[in-house]
């Protein structure tokens, strides 16, 4: 394949397919997430990081501008496709979280695949939708300890799931050798 700088159709297709695989996970995850909700103790927030893992994994695999945003959009709309359930909120949230990841990746110029970058992207995506949640869920009127619990769980989850777990998946994927196909072929130069 010719080396091209921008996103090719193949790049976009691979990004979207990665996101769709994750939207299957989301569909199952959604059940667990809801099951933890009734307590109201925000235990479900511990799982929150899963909602934007697709962006981080897609970036680590392809490392091109725009990938994280496309992946998040695809994963959010993928839930519509898999579950036949359209939720505007989901897509708006997906885009914001994708954008937050994208900014982090732009800062490292789409080069680094270190664990640290993944963790920071995870945390920033976790924080990105907080203002919107504040208005939507009237979080200002929540008991302070409960709010802090929610905040802490969410950041922790962003770091652990979207950061650490995403990086673990990336390393495992790298071992399969499938990444030789992807992007500008830089993986091949890394001796895979």
């Amino acid at each position: 394949m010719a080396k091209r700088k921008g996103l090719t159709l193949t790049d976009v297709l691979i990004t979207v397919v990665i996101a769709l695989v994750f939207s299957f996970v989301y569909s199952i995850w959604g059940g667990v997430y809801t099951a933890l909700e009734p307590l109201g103790l925000h235990l479900n927030q511990l799982l929150y990081g899963m909602w934007f893992i697709a962006a981080v994994v897609a970036y680590l695999v392809i490392r091109k501008p725009g990938v994280a945003l496309i992946a998040e959009f695809a994963a959010a709309s993928g839930e519509t496709i898999v579950m036949l359930q359209f939720d505007v909120m989901l897509i708006v949230y997906g885009l914001i979280q994708g954008l937050a990841c994208e900014i982090v990746f732009a800062i490292v110029k789409y080069k680094s695949t270190s664990l640290m970058v993944a963790v920071i992207a995870g945390i920033s995506a976790a924080l990105a939708t907080f203002p919107l949640d504040w208005y939507y869920g009237y979080l200002g009127q929540l008991a302070t300890w409960n709010l802090l619990l929610m905040f802490g769980f969410r950041v922790l989850s962003g770091a652990l799931i979207a950061g650490w777990l995403a990086h673990l998946l990336y390393r495992a994927l790298k071992e399969t050798g499938v990444l030789k196909l992807v992007g500008n072929g830089h993986a091949a130069e890394e001796g895979l």
Partner: peptide, 28 residues
């Protein structure tokens, strides 16, 4: 992880094959 890696790697391979085919057919 093993489930996800299996699904992801197969999907990436398939997407790559399809992507190359579509690019050569001018969907680009």
């Amino acid at each position: 992880i093993s489930t996800l890696v299996t699904l992801l790697s197969q999907s990436i391979r398939r997407a790559w094959r399809l992507g190359v085919a579509m690019e050569s057919k001018g969907f680009d």
